[in-house]
């Protein structure tokens, strides 16, 4: 299990490839990967930048708790959560959740559970920069659809 925070743009697919090397290829029948990137729009407005504030220490601890609870519910061979913090530009990777298991349903359900809990519970706060130069704090995440 690994939880990693990045203050610079990161390559989620390189992290997936790196994490997979630690899991025996013959055992990992299923990998489920979610990569979320920053859009350049939100609620009909053009967004030119995002500041992602976190609580150093507590944010990592909360993410580790979410992952540990998923590991207790599903038989996982590996799990990696990477999250961006600080100043983010449209197109940058924001979040990576990757899970490995012998079978597809455990990998897929665990990945989805970790992602949804992270989207609602993890101590992150978002401040958007709009095209006119103004800033606004985001009150809550948009629904996932």
């Amino acid at each position: 299990m690994a939880v990693e925070l990045y203050s610079e743009d990161f390559d989620p697919w390189a992290l997936v490839a790196r994490a997979e090397r630690d899991i025996p290829a013959q055992a990992r029948g299923a990998a489920s990967v979610f990569v979320g990137r920053m859009r350049d729009f939100n609620e009909d407005d053009t967004v030119t930048g995002l500041f992602l504030e976190h609580y150093p220490g507590m944010t990592e601890r909360e993410l580790e708790r979410i992952v540990a609870e998923a590991e207790s519910r599903w038989p996982l061979l590996g799990c990696l959560v990477a999250h961006r913090v600080g100043d983010v530009r449209p197109g940058d990777a924001l979040v990576l959740v990757a899970t490995w298991s012998a079978h597809r349903i455990a990998a897929r359900d665990a990945c989805s559970d970790i992602l949804e809990r992270l989207k609602h519970e993890a101590p992150f706060w978002k401040r958007e920069r709009l095209a006119d130069g103004s800033d606004r704090w985001v009150e809550k995440n948009t629904p996932g659809f």
């Binding site: 609580y55 220490g57 507590m58 601890r61 993410l63 999250h83 924001l94 979040v95 992270l118 989207k119 609602h120 519970e121 993890a122 101590p123 992150f124 706060w125 978002k126 704090w137 985001v138 009150e139 809550k140 995440n141």
Partner: peptide
């Protein structure tokens, strides 16, 4: 609120050396 980096409530007791955090509802990751 959080006390020592664990979610807490307004009636949670704080003692010498503790770390207290106040923040608005989280936006999530």
């Amino acid at each position: 609120v959080a006390v020592n980096q664990e979610q807490a409530a307004l009636d949670t007791l704080v003692r010498d050396g503790d770390e207290v955090a106040y923040f608005p509802p989280v936006t999530g990751g």
